[in-house]
Amino acid sequence: MQQLKCVLLDDEIPGLTYLKLLCEQIPEIEIVKSFNDPLLFIKEQEKLDYDLCICDIEMPGLKGTEVAQLIQSKMILFTTAYKEFAVEAFELNAVDYLTKPLKKDRLQVAIDKALLRKEQTAPIAQTIQWQTEKGKAVLQIENILHIQTSAIDSRDKQMIYDNQFITLKNITFEKLKQLLPSNSYCQINKNEMIRLQCVTFFTADQIDTSIVFQNKKLVLSIGNSYKVEFSEKMKNF
């Protein structure tokens, strides 16, 4: 599961305490530090490893909109009791704008937006390293075309890589999803994952690919529980 490292900023202690309580109920959030003084936050923030600042707007010393201008390399999510700041907030490219009193469901929507933005702006890895049947290998991601569960040992995965079979030792599909760019790969059934660039045609149940391996064109089936994710990824591909 991907996580966001978050800093919380609200000058009112009760509001900050409540925000922290909500964040602790959302598993995708890792709270790095909480501040009730925007000036102290600005002084310390360069030393902190965080992705997102969840920030009140009306604060003494510095408004949240001024904080946003000072931390432009980081994502910001505004919370406020006042609706009139919405336009200014989005002009600052805020992830979202939440009005108080905050609700967990609405905060979750905002966090999902931040996770998507983080994923879209993350540098794309060019290689992965993993143990294979021949030893540890450095693999070019663009050459990984298809992955399936090994028929010999289900803990291993066998991939079509640059027109050859390579066995990855003791790896799960969940781990592969972490290693491979999610906008380029999709698990399509319980035992297979495909590089989306290799899809030529697809129906509700079948995928035709451009992969020809051992003189046979690869045709795959889509599992029922994987259809929605595959369809969404192909829309954006």
Rank of each mutant, 00 (worst) to 15 (best):
D105G: 01
R106D: 10
R106I: 05
V109F: 12
V109Y: 12
K113Q: 12
K113P: 12
A114L: 10
L116K: 15
L116P: 06
R117C: 08
R117G: 01
Q120T: 05
Q120H: 08
T121W: 02
A122D: 01
A122P: 06
I124V: 14
A125C: 03
A125P: 08
A125M: 10
T127R: 05
T127H: 13
T127E: 11
I128F: 05
Q129V: 15
Q129N: 12
Q129D: 08
Q129T: 15
Q129S: 15
W130Y: 14
T132Q: 02
T132W: 10
E133F: 03
K134N: 14
K134Q: 12
K134W: 06
K136P: 11
A137P: 09
L139M: 10
Q140N: 12
Q140H: 08
I141L: 07
L145I: 00
H146C: 04
Q148A: 09
T149F: 09
T149M: 11
I152S: 15
D153M: 03
R155P: 10
R155G: 07
D156L: 07
M159V: 06
M159P: 09
M159G: 04
M159Q: 05
Y161M: 14
N163Y: 05
N163P: 07
N163F: 09
F165N: 06
I166H: 03
I166M: 11
L168G: 03
L168P: 09
L168T: 00
K169R: 13
K169D: 10
N170R: 14
I171S: 00
T172C: 15
T172I: 14
K175P: 05
L176D: 01
L176Y: 07
L176H: 04
Q178F: 09
Q178M: 11
L179K: 13
L179R: 01
L180D: 04
P181W: 08
P181H: 09
S182W: 05
N183S: 15
N183E: 13
S184H: 12
Y185G: 00
C186K: 11
C186N: 04
Q187K: 12
I188S: 00
I188D: 05
I188L: 07
N189E: 07
N189Y: 07
K190G: 03
K190T: 12
K190A: 13
N191M: 10
E192D: 01
M193Y: 06
I194D: 01
R195D: 01
L196Y: 08
L196F: 08
Q197E: 10
Q197D: 13
C198P: 09
C198W: 02
C198H: 10
T200E: 15
T200A: 12
F201T: 09
F202N: 11
T203V: 08
D205M: 09
Q206C: 14
D208P: 08
D208L: 11
S210F: 04
F213G: 02
F213V: 00
F213I: 01
N215H: 15
N215K: 15
K216H: 11
K216F: 04
L218N: 02
L218H: 07
V219E: 13
L220D: 00
S221K: 14
I222K: 01
G223H: 06
N224T: 12
S225K: 10
S225A: 04
Y226M: 03
E229H: 04
E229L: 02
F230W: 14
F230A: 06
S231G: 13
S231F: 10
